[in-house]
Simulated assay, not measured.
Amino acid sequence: MSGVLNIFVVSPDTRSERRIEPYWTVQELKDKLEVITGIPSSNQRISLLESEGNQNALAQLSENSRELSEYGLRDWQVLKVEDTNPSVSFTGQLSDVSQVEKFELSDVEYAKRQDSVLAYKKRNRVGRFTETEEEGIQPPMAIDIPIGARCEVESAEPGLSKRGTVRYIGQTNFSKGTWVGIEYDEPIGKNNGSVQGERYFECRQKYGVFVRPEKVRVGDYPVEEISLDDEEM
């Protein structure tokens, strides 16, 4: 048997993947595993397993003078290393937390600490602290704009009347705050009642728009007739 083997090595405190040479003797293997597992070579009991899920030992590597090739090792098998005298090397105690005194804080004490994850989130406005506790989250403003009402939208262009019908009022996924969805009388909008794949109301393409409530005036605004005489063509 020749060639380097890839083997898993497990012990009470370690688990690792190792490359070993088949010509090593068991004693040479133990000497190398002492550094890895912390178990003195003289206290090691090594079992060869097919896998970690199968704890039935295929062989015990107990004869220090024999070469590993004599045990028929294959890639990705497992060498389970046990400590026959754990009281000397403290094997297993590194991963045993049952005797460790727990450090506990009350919720009030934890909230006072400045080196905690909670403090970090507050400082950087992460998660639920996007709005700080001092600022608070403002409740939705009261809006007297009925669904279905006729309206006119404030325009920056002189003489342009942007009239339509209110189709939606509320929160959206594309931006914070309250938005008013309007179906214009003419194709001067930006969408069809949906934004970024989320539908809020139905209308034809380019007839829909979302604006802030303060830009909307509700009233008896009739639909303006579009003149098609020769002077306006």
Rank of each mutant, 00 (worst) to 15 (best):
R45G: 10
R66T: 11
L58R: 00
S51E: 02
Q60F: 14
A57I: 04
E134R: 14
L48G: 01
I143F: 00
V126P: 00
G127S: 11
S65A: 11
Y110A: 10
F90T: 00
I143V: 15
E134A: 09
W76P: 00
L73W: 01
M141E: 15
G72H: 05
R66L: 15
S42V: 13
P146I: 02
S95D: 12
T132F: 07
E135W: 08
D144I: 01
K80M: 10
I143K: 04
I143N: 11
E82L: 06
S62M: 08
N54F: 04
V88A: 14
L61N: 00
G53P: 04
R45C: 06
S47E: 08
Y120D: 14
E52W: 02
S47L: 07
S51H: 04
E52T: 13
Q55L: 04
Q55A: 11
A57W: 01
E104K: 08
Y71V: 03
N85M: 08
E101F: 06
V78L: 09
E131H: 14
S41F: 05
L94S: 09
Q44A: 07
K80N: 11
E133M: 12
K80G: 03
V81S: 01
E104S: 09
F103W: 10
F129I: 02
T132E: 07
G38I: 02
S69M: 09
E82R: 02
F103P: 00
G127M: 05
Q114F: 06
I36Y: 07
G92Q: 11
R125I: 10
R113S: 07
E82G: 02
F90L: 13
E67F: 01
E50T: 03
E109A: 14
Q114H: 10
V88C: 08
V117M: 06
E52Q: 12
Y71M: 02
E133Q: 13
S116F: 08
D83A: 05
R123Y: 06
S89K: 06
Q114A: 13
L49W: 02
S51I: 05
L105F: 14
A119W: 05
A119E: 07
E109H: 08
Q114R: 13
Y71A: 03
P86R: 06
L79W: 00
E134K: 14
G127D: 15
Q99A: 12
S62T: 12
N124I: 11
S62C: 07
K112H: 12
P40K: 03
P86G: 03
P86A: 07
